[in-house]
Amino acid sequence: MKLPPLRALPVFEAVARLNSFSRAADELNVSQSAVSHQIKALEDYLGEALFQRSGRYLVLTEEGRTYHDNISSALLQIERATESVLGEATSRLRLAVLSSFAVRWLIPRLPSLQRAHSQLDLVLEMTSETPQLSDRVADCFITIHRGSQAFTYDLLYRERLFPICSRQYWRTICETLALPEDAAEDDHLALTPEQVARFPLLSTYSIYGRESGDWAAWFGVAEQALPAKARIQHFSHMLMALEAARFHQGIALTNDYMLSEEADAEAFVRLPCHTLITGDCFYFAHKTSRRNEPGIRRMRRWLIEQAMASGLRTRIETESGTDPA
Rank of each mutant, 00 (worst) to 15 (best):
M1S: 15
P4Q: 10
P10N: 05
A16F: 04
R17Y: 00
N19C: 11
F21I: 15
S22R: 08
L28R: 14
L28E: 01
N29Q: 13
N29W: 14
A34C: 00
S36C: 04
S36Y: 04
S36F: 01
H37E: 14
I39D: 00
I39R: 05
K40S: 13
A41I: 06
A41C: 02
A49I: 01
L50R: 13
L50F: 06
R53S: 12
L60F: 06
R65H: 07
D69V: 05
N70T: 12
S72V: 02
S73L: 15
A74E: 15
R80W: 09
R80K: 02
T82V: 09
S84R: 15
S84K: 15
A89G: 06
R92C: 04
R94I: 12
L98R: 12
S99R: 14
F101C: 10
V103N: 09
W105P: 10
L106Y: 02
L106W: 07
L110P: 09
P111L: 06
R115E: 15
H117M: 01
H117A: 02
H117C: 00
L120G: 11
L120Y: 04
L124K: 05
T127M: 06
L133M: 12
S134L: 04
D135L: 12
D135F: 13
R136M: 12
D139I: 03
F141D: 04
I142R: 09
I144A: 09
H145V: 15
R146E: 09
A150E: 11
A150L: 14
A150Q: 14
F151A: 01
Y153I: 01
L156I: 04
L156H: 10
L156N: 10
Y157T: 01
E159D: 08
L161A: 11
L161Y: 03
F162Q: 11
P163Y: 10
P163N: 10
I164H: 00
C165V: 03
S166H: 10
Q168R: 07
Y169C: 03
Y169R: 03
R171Y: 00
R171I: 11
C174Q: 05
E175L: 12
T176H: 12
L179H: 05
L179A: 03
L191P: 02
L202C: 07
S203Y: 05
S206E: 12
S212T: 12
E223R: 13
P227L: 13
R231L: 13
I232G: 06
Q233M: 03
L239G: 15
A241Y: 11
L242D: 13
F247I: 01
H248Q: 08
H248D: 15
Q249R: 11
A252S: 14
N255Q: 13
D256A: 15
S260H: 05
A265C: 07
L271F: 05
P272I: 08
C273I: 02
C273S: 11
T278W: 05
G279W: 09
C281G: 08
F284M: 02
F284T: 06
A285H: 08
K287M: 04
R291M: 07
N292R: 05
N292H: 11
E293T: 05
P294H: 06
M299E: 09
R300T: 06
R301A: 14
I304G: 03
I304L: 14
A309G: 06
A309D: 13
S310H: 02
G311I: 10
L312P: 00
I316G: 01
E317M: 00
T318P: 00
S320W: 04
D323K: 04
D323V: 10
D323N: 11
P324E: 12
